[in-house]
Amino acid sequence: MENRFKSVFDIIGPVMIGPSSSHTAGAVAIGREGNKLFGGIPKKVTVHYYGSFAQTHRGHGTDYAIAAGILGFTTSDLRVPKAPEIARKRGIDIRFVEEKGESPIHHPNTAILDMTDGHKKVQLAGCSIGGGAIEIRRLVIHDIVVEPSGTLPIVLLIDPERKIKNQRSLTSFLQQKAPFNESRIYKSPDYYIYEYDIQNYFKPSLIGELKKKYKNIVCL
């Protein structure tokens, strides 16, 4: 059984600014993962809401929460409710679209982030599963669609060398330091992407170690 909730602090926590853990704290988390995947703050973000998110985002403060996450704020940052203003002042264009159809990733609390800075285009499809915990069920990087099982943490290595020995090196490193449930390889003419569904939350030092060892690694 793969557990969606992996820590007692997924249940008792997070410490956050109200009003909703799924629609506010979870939305901050989705925005933060967007920031991590993009590798910083994008210039333009279009947020597509589905299901309960589309129906209730205004009442729950989901818009400011996603904006806060994109800016890299944490759930307990007192600037969270002011995030859209802060983003505007920094020249970041964030738009919100209420979609009518079914969520493409099949969850009622879905937000899909289209992020760009003019050159780079990245998409992240996340859903908020309760208590501030989220899943990332689809990513589009360099036009490659990546579909992890959803539960965090997720490790991605974007490999412009397209050398499977890079995948093997990362695989054996992770097997020792951060066991994973599944891994997948995605290929395009320009890039290979290696994706891993990690079992438990990272030990604090491990992300630094991974970033030092592998260029173009993303830890969600």
Partner: peptide, 18 residues
């Protein structure tokens, strides 16, 4: 009431049930 007023709370397990 603090949660509804956008104050700081601890979600247990959620903010709505904090």
């Amino acid at each position: 009431e603090v949660n509804a007023a956008m104050g700081v709370i601890c979600a247990t397990p959620t903010a709505g049930s904090s």
